[in-house]
């Protein structure tokens, strides 16, 4: 309760500062409009269909890209982790490809897809794939060797070993990867729209900026921040739900 109160105090303080600074002439109101004006613009924007359409586009790119990337990464990670020797053979390639910043692919995406959903997907999938893959690899490596040998000597098939041993062990890692990937995917979705001009929130911000609608730029940035928070919260809830059986989550709930 106290925390909530303090938090509200902090937010109010920020708003008051943003309101006072331009009004008192500390900063140029053309570049930093007062908070009340930003919020009024935001309220106005929220009633237009354009904003919601753009949000829909952004979230579609985010969701499809994230789903594709995690599906591919989980499949690849389990295969690499389970087949003997494959991990050692792929590690140098993974270590080389992973740090390539996905924005390096911006020109390629522009050439191949132009300003469309395809560009967004290329960037989103590339960026989030590695986040999930690395975690899946950690997860598969964390399988208890004794449990593994037990499963073998009981004659479990390769598929049921993956299903009943590898998958539950690596699920917490997969969820961590998914949480990291969800945030990255949102950043890259907006980036693709901003830089390449695929339809969505990023493109709206770019248009607002080049037409000099400064309060709108701020309002849209607030929207982007709120969605970012929403994405983080949603993935955390999903994580708790999927891992409700896991001791780490159970303890947290009990405590």
């Amino acid at each position: 309760m106290r925390r909530l109160l303090h938090g509200l105090l902090g937010l109010t303080g920020l708003l008051a500062l943003l309101e006072a600074a331009p009004r008192l002439g500390l900063v140029d109101a053309r570049f930093l409009p007062p908070a009340s004006e930003i919020l009024r613009t935001l309220a106005g924007e929220l009633t237009t269909a354009g904003l919601w359409l753009a949000l829909g586009e952004t979230m579609r790119g985010w969701a499809v890209g994230l789903a594709l990337a995690s599906g591919l990464a989980v499949a690849a990670g389990v295969v690499i982790g389970v087949v003997p020797g494959l991990r050692a053979a792929t590690s140098s390639t993974v270590e080389f490809l992973r740090p390539i910043p996905s924005v390096a692919l911006v020109p390629l995406a522009t050439l191949l897809f132009g300003p469309s959903l395809g560009s967004t997907l290329l960037l989103v999938v590339y960026a989030s794939f590695w986040q999930v893959l690395i975690q899946v690899l950690y997860g598969v490596a964390a399988v208890d060797p004794v449990a593994h040998d037990t499963a073998r000597s009981y004659g479990l098939s390769a598929w049921s070993r993956v299903r009943h041993l590898v998958w539950p062990t690596s699920l917490p890692y997969v969820m961590t990867g998914l949480r990291l990937a969800a945030a990255v995917a949102f950043i890259l979705a907006v980036t693709a729209e901003l830089v390449i001009g695929s339809p969505g929130l990023g493109a709206e911000i770019q248009v607002a900026q080049s037409s000099g609608a400064v309060p709108t730029v701020y309002a849209l940035i607030v929207v982007a921040g709120l969605i970012g928070i929403g994405v983080n919260t949603a993935v955390r809830l999903l994580e708790r739900r999927v891992l409700a059986w896991h001791p780490a989550v159970r303890e947290e709930v009990a405590g």
Binding site: R3, L9, G10, L11, T191, I205, I227
Partner: peptide, 18 residues
């Protein structure tokens, strides 16, 4: 406790938007 919501908000903004 006072700054946490503010900081979380700033962190959630995708940086390229800025």
């Amino acid at each position: 406790a006072t700054l946490e919501p503010v900081l979380e908000f700033f962190r959630a903004i995708p940086p390229p938007v800025l």
